[in-house]
């Protein structure tokens, strides 16, 4: 498969705790293609964040392999950007919005003018072209998360990983940010791996939804979302097909919670 971007193979993570080993991730395998927008949903406490930290090279898996663009991930890979749920804690409060977006670009081979263009472009992409000189703490939560997204956009990563990025913002802001993610994916062809606990959000955003089981986690279902690429908060969510898909995902999550789904034997 030449266009495989991310390959997670038989990933397993066991935490050593005082009361003995805890198996957070049992056995997760999936592939993601170049230019795809994949959503990962699962019941709470199913190890979504652990999975992301392993993919991002921030956490060492107990077993299994992760490959990004055909290179094994052993530490934070070069061309990956992360957007965290805790926007307030992931932006540097002593830097301006512009300073935050620019900081990861400092070590890339480019001159100041080019770097400045990238920052301008990223700020414009998220609709914050006028907020460059503000400090993150002067902005609302939704705008802060836009800054974090702009920082990732300016970085031009091969894959953008988002860990429940909109869980802490209000519903209207959330809808706007979802459309922003769709726009980045459609207009800029960004490959995005989006983790959420919100079923509607996963169906609305994704081209594929991967449903995780409860811990120790494995991939319970992998659903292709056959909605048109141009999506709209009102019309898309009113489509019968949208309802079918969300019902399907919802049932899978319920099965996962009840522990009914049977783990396939490797």
């Amino acid at each position: 498969m030449p266009d495989t971007l991310l390959e997670v193979h038989q990933l397993k993570k066991v935490y050593e705790t005082a009361s003995g080993p805890v198996e957070a991730i049992g056995d997760i395998s999936f592939d993601m293609r170049q230019g795809e927008l994949v959503c990962i949903v699962g019941p709470s406490g199913c190890g979504k964040t652990t999975l992301l930290k392993c993919i991002a090279g921030l956490l060492k898996p107990t077993a299994g392999t992760i490959r990004l663009a055909d290179r094994p991930v052993t530490g934070p890979p070069e061309s990956m950007a992360l957007v965290f749920q805790e926007y307030g804690r992931s932006l540097y409060p002593w830097l301006t919005v512009r300073g935050n977006v620019e900081l990861p670009l400092r070590h890339q081979k480019m001159d100041a003018a080019q770097r400045s263009r990238l920052v301008d472009d990223a700020l414009e992409a998220v609709g914050l072209e006028h907020a460059g000189r503000s400090y993150p703490w002067q902005l609302s939560g939704g705008m802060q998360q836009r800054v974090a997204i702009a920082r990732a956009v300016a970085y031009h990563p091969e894959v953008l990983i988002m860990d429940e990025p909109f869980a802490a913002v209000d519903a209207q802001t959330r809808a706007d940010l979802e459309d922003l993610v769709r726009a980045l994916h459609i207009e800029r062809g960004m490959s995005i791996l989006f983790v959420t606990h919100d079923i509607d959000e996963s169906v609305y955003l994704g081209e594929r939804v991967i449903v995780l089981s409860t811990s120790p986690t494995w991939v319970q279902d992998d659903i292709a979302i056959d909605l048109a690429p141009e999506r709209d908060q009102i019309t898309t969510r009113a489509l019968p097909r949208f309802t079918e898909l969300r019902t399907h995902v919802y049932e899978q999550i319920q099965r996962a919670k009840r522990g009914e789904a049977v783990r396939p034997q490797a």
């Binding site: 090279g57 934070p76 950007a81 965290f84 804690r89 540097y92 900081l103 990861p104």
Partner: peptide
């Protein structure tokens, strides 16, 4: 730790990390 993870994921060089994140933080 989120600030530190952010710095790690963007692969800040050591001096940048020490000054921009650790010292200023």
């Amino acid at each position: 730790e989120v600030l530190v993870d952010t710095a790690r994921s963007y692969r800040f060089r050591r001096p940048t990390y020490l000054y921009q994140v650790v010292l200023r933080g």
